[in-house]
Protein backbone atom coordinates (compact mmCIF):
# COMPACT_ATOMS: atom_id res chain seq x y z
CA UNK A 1 0.00 0.00 0.00
CA UNK A 2 2.87 2.34 0.70
CA UNK A 3 3.86 2.20 -2.97
CA UNK A 4 0.67 4.01 -3.93
CA UNK A 5 0.84 7.68 -4.85
CA UNK A 6 -2.08 9.91 -5.75
CA UNK A 7 -1.66 13.38 -7.26
CA UNK A 8 -4.65 15.66 -7.80
CA UNK A 9 -4.16 18.49 -10.31
CA UNK A 10 -6.44 21.44 -10.85
CA UNK A 11 -6.37 24.52 -13.02
CA UNK A 12 -8.29 26.65 -15.46
CA UNK A 13 -9.17 25.61 -19.02
CA UNK A 14 -6.46 26.58 -21.50
CA UNK A 15 -3.71 26.64 -18.85
CA UNK A 16 -2.13 23.38 -19.94
CA UNK A 17 -3.15 21.31 -16.89
CA UNK A 18 -3.69 18.24 -19.07
CA UNK A 19 -0.35 18.66 -20.86
CA UNK A 20 1.42 18.61 -17.49
CA UNK A 21 -0.60 15.56 -16.40
CA UNK A 22 0.23 13.61 -19.53
CA UNK A 23 3.91 14.54 -19.28
CA UNK A 24 4.05 13.31 -15.68
CA UNK A 25 2.25 10.07 -16.63
CA UNK A 26 4.66 9.42 -19.51
CA UNK A 27 7.61 10.06 -17.21
CA UNK A 28 6.23 7.58 -14.65
CA UNK A 29 5.68 4.96 -17.35
CA UNK A 30 9.19 5.50 -18.71
CA UNK A 31 10.64 4.25 -15.41
CA UNK A 32 8.22 1.31 -15.38
CA UNK A 33 5.76 2.54 -12.74
CA UNK A 34 2.15 1.27 -12.95
CA UNK A 35 0.51 4.60 -13.75
CA UNK A 36 -3.09 5.61 -14.42
CA UNK A 37 -4.27 9.13 -14.97
CA UNK A 38 -7.65 10.68 -15.47
CA UNK A 39 -9.12 13.94 -16.62
CA UNK A 40 -12.44 15.68 -16.54
CA UNK A 41 -12.99 18.39 -19.08
CA UNK A 42 -15.68 18.54 -21.78
CA UNK A 43 -17.25 21.92 -21.15
CA UNK A 44 -14.25 23.02 -19.09
CA UNK A 45 -12.38 24.12 -22.21
CA UNK A 46 -14.44 27.31 -22.16
CA UNK A 47 -12.67 28.86 -19.16
CA UNK A 48 -14.03 26.40 -16.61
CA UNK A 49 -12.15 24.29 -14.09
CA UNK A 50 -10.03 21.41 -15.37
CA UNK A 51 -9.24 18.64 -12.91
CA UNK A 52 -6.93 15.75 -13.55
CA UNK A 53 -5.36 12.93 -11.60
CA UNK A 54 -2.26 10.82 -11.65
CA UNK A 55 -2.13 7.61 -9.64
CA UNK A 56 0.70 5.14 -9.20
CA UNK A 57 -0.10 1.61 -8.04
CA UNK A 58 -3.88 2.06 -8.40
CA UNK A 59 -6.44 0.80 -10.91
CA UNK A 60 -8.88 3.68 -10.37
CA UNK A 61 -8.31 6.88 -12.35
CA UNK A 62 -10.24 8.82 -9.70
CA UNK A 63 -9.17 10.44 -6.43
CA UNK A 64 -11.75 10.83 -3.67
CA UNK A 65 -11.95 13.45 -0.93
CA UNK A 66 -9.07 13.13 1.52
CA UNK A 67 -7.16 10.71 -0.72
CA UNK A 68 -4.55 12.82 -2.52
CA UNK A 69 -0.94 12.65 -1.36
CA UNK A 70 -0.14 15.72 -3.44
CA UNK A 71 -2.28 18.60 -4.66
CA UNK A 72 -0.90 20.57 -7.60
CA UNK A 73 -2.81 23.80 -8.13
CA UNK A 74 -2.11 25.72 -11.28
CA UNK A 75 -4.30 28.58 -10.00
CA UNK A 76 -4.58 29.59 -6.31
CA UNK A 77 -8.39 29.79 -6.06
CA UNK A 78 -8.60 26.33 -7.63
CA UNK A 79 -5.98 25.09 -5.17
CA UNK A 80 -8.24 26.19 -2.34
CA UNK A 81 -11.33 24.68 -3.96
CA UNK A 82 -9.58 21.32 -4.34
CA UNK A 83 -8.12 21.27 -0.81
CA UNK A 84 -10.70 18.73 0.46
CA UNK A 85 -9.09 16.14 -1.84
CA UNK A 86 -5.82 16.35 0.12
CA UNK A 87 -5.18 13.76 2.80
CA UNK A 88 -3.92 14.74 6.24
CA UNK A 89 -0.18 15.38 6.03
CA UNK A 90 -0.37 15.83 2.25
CA UNK A 91 1.72 18.22 0.20
CA UNK A 92 0.40 21.28 -1.70
CA UNK A 93 2.23 22.95 -4.56
CA UNK A 94 0.43 25.91 -6.01
CA UNK A 95 0.69 28.87 -8.27
CA UNK A 96 0.63 32.12 -6.34
CA UNK A 97 -0.73 34.12 -9.28
CA UNK A 98 -4.51 34.38 -9.52
CA UNK A 99 -6.62 34.12 -12.65
CA UNK A 100 -9.87 35.52 -11.27
CA UNK A 101 -13.12 34.04 -12.62
CA UNK A 102 -15.23 36.57 -14.59
CA UNK A 103 -17.61 37.22 -11.68
CA UNK A 104 -14.65 38.30 -9.55
CA UNK A 105 -12.84 40.18 -12.32
CA UNK A 106 -15.96 42.26 -12.92
CA UNK A 107 -16.51 42.95 -9.23
CA UNK A 108 -19.73 40.98 -8.85
CA UNK A 109 -18.24 38.53 -6.37
CA UNK A 110 -15.15 38.56 -4.24
CA UNK A 111 -12.57 35.82 -3.97
CA UNK A 112 -10.16 35.32 -1.11
CA UNK A 113 -6.86 37.10 -1.71
CA UNK A 114 -3.80 35.04 -2.55
CA UNK A 115 -2.45 35.88 0.93
CA UNK A 116 -5.66 34.52 2.49
CA UNK A 117 -5.48 31.40 0.34
CA UNK A 118 -1.86 30.88 1.36
CA UNK A 119 -2.72 31.27 5.02
CA UNK A 120 -5.67 28.90 4.79
CA UNK A 121 -3.73 26.24 2.85
CA UNK A 122 -0.73 26.48 5.15
CA UNK A 123 -2.95 26.23 8.22
CA UNK A 124 -4.48 23.05 6.80
CA UNK A 125 -1.44 21.17 5.74
CA UNK A 126 1.67 23.04 6.84
CA UNK A 127 3.33 21.43 3.90
CA UNK A 128 2.68 23.98 1.17
CA UNK A 129 4.82 25.66 -1.42
CA UNK A 130 3.60 28.61 -3.51
CA UNK A 131 5.48 29.82 -6.55
CA UNK A 132 4.83 32.44 -9.24
CA UNK A 133 4.05 29.87 -11.93
CA UNK A 134 2.94 32.26 -14.67
CA UNK A 135 5.92 34.56 -14.19
CA UNK A 136 8.28 31.60 -14.28
CA UNK A 137 6.58 30.46 -17.47
CA UNK A 138 7.01 33.87 -19.07
CA UNK A 139 10.65 33.89 -17.93
CA UNK A 140 11.15 30.50 -19.57
CA UNK A 141 9.61 31.68 -22.82
CA UNK A 142 5.88 30.81 -22.75
CA UNK A 143 3.29 31.39 -20.04
CA UNK A 144 1.91 27.84 -20.40
CA UNK A 145 5.29 26.36 -19.52
CA UNK A 146 4.70 27.59 -15.97
CA UNK A 147 2.99 24.26 -15.29
CA UNK A 148 6.28 22.53 -15.94
CA UNK A 149 7.94 24.85 -13.42
CA UNK A 150 5.51 23.49 -10.83
CA UNK A 151 6.62 19.96 -11.77
CA UNK A 152 10.25 21.09 -11.35
CA UNK A 153 9.48 22.28 -7.82
CA UNK A 154 7.78 18.96 -7.11
CA UNK A 155 10.96 17.13 -8.11
CA UNK A 156 13.13 19.45 -6.01
CA UNK A 157 11.04 18.57 -2.97
CA UNK A 158 11.71 14.88 -3.61
CA UNK A 159 8.00 14.18 -3.70
CA UNK A 160 8.05 11.87 -6.73
CA UNK A 161 9.44 8.35 -7.05
CA UNK A 162 11.64 9.62 -9.89
CA UNK A 163 13.81 12.67 -10.44
CA UNK A 164 13.83 15.80 -12.55
CA UNK A 165 16.08 14.05 -15.06
CA UNK A 166 13.26 11.63 -15.94
CA UNK A 167 10.86 14.50 -16.62
CA UNK A 168 13.54 16.26 -18.66
CA UNK A 169 14.09 13.11 -20.73
CA UNK A 170 10.33 12.80 -21.30
CA UNK A 171 10.13 16.44 -22.42
CA UNK A 172 12.94 15.82 -24.92
CA UNK A 173 11.34 12.62 -26.18
CA UNK A 174 7.80 13.94 -26.64
CA UNK A 175 7.98 17.63 -27.54
CA UNK A 176 9.24 19.51 -30.58
CA UNK A 177 12.78 20.86 -29.95
CA UNK A 178 11.72 24.51 -29.69
CA UNK A 179 8.90 23.79 -27.24
CA UNK A 180 11.08 21.31 -25.34
CA UNK A 181 13.74 23.97 -24.80
CA UNK A 182 11.25 26.35 -23.16
CA UNK A 183 9.83 23.60 -20.97
CA UNK A 184 13.27 22.39 -19.88
CA UNK A 185 14.08 25.93 -18.83
CA UNK A 186 10.79 26.15 -16.91
CA UNK A 187 11.58 22.83 -15.22
CA UNK A 188 14.92 24.23 -14.00
CA UNK A 189 13.40 27.53 -12.86
CA UNK A 190 10.78 25.64 -10.86
CA UNK A 191 13.32 23.25 -9.38
CA UNK A 192 15.31 26.22 -8.07
CA UNK A 193 12.28 27.62 -6.21
CA UNK A 194 11.77 25.54 -3.06
CA UNK A 195 14.78 26.54 -1.00
Amino acid sequence: MSSKLRIFMTGVGGQGTLTATTLLARAALSVGLPVTSGEIHGMAQRGGVVESTLLIGCKSPKIGLGEADILLGFEPLETLRALPYLKPGGLVLSSSEALPPPSVATGKETAPSVADIRAKVTACCGNACFLPVRSLGVQAGAVQSGNIALLGALCALGALPFGKDVIAATIRATMKPKVAEINLKALELGAACPA
Binding site: L65, L83, P88, G89
Partner: peptide, 22 residues
Protein backbone atom coordinates in the same frame (compact mmCIF):
# COMPACT_ATOMS: atom_id res chain seq x y z
CA UNK B 1 -12.17 9.82 5.38
CA UNK B 2 -10.52 12.83 6.91
CA UNK B 3 -8.96 15.40 4.65
CA UNK B 4 -6.20 17.82 5.47
CA UNK B 5 -8.79 20.30 6.78
CA UNK B 6 -10.83 17.94 8.89
CA UNK B 7 -13.83 15.80 8.06
CA UNK B 8 -14.07 15.50 4.27
CA UNK B 9 -17.83 15.07 4.39
CA UNK B 10 -18.37 18.51 5.81
CA UNK B 11 -15.69 20.65 4.32
CA UNK B 12 -17.00 24.16 4.36
CA UNK B 13 -14.60 25.61 1.82
CA UNK B 14 -15.87 25.04 -1.71
CA UNK B 15 -19.46 26.25 -1.41
CA UNK B 16 -18.34 29.67 -0.26
CA UNK B 17 -15.93 30.22 -3.14
CA UNK B 18 -16.90 32.05 -6.32
CA UNK B 19 -17.61 29.59 -9.12
CA UNK B 20 -15.82 29.38 -12.42
CA UNK B 21 -18.54 28.28 -14.83
CA UNK B 22 -17.67 27.64 -18.47
Amino acid sequence: QACACGDASEVALPAALPNRPP
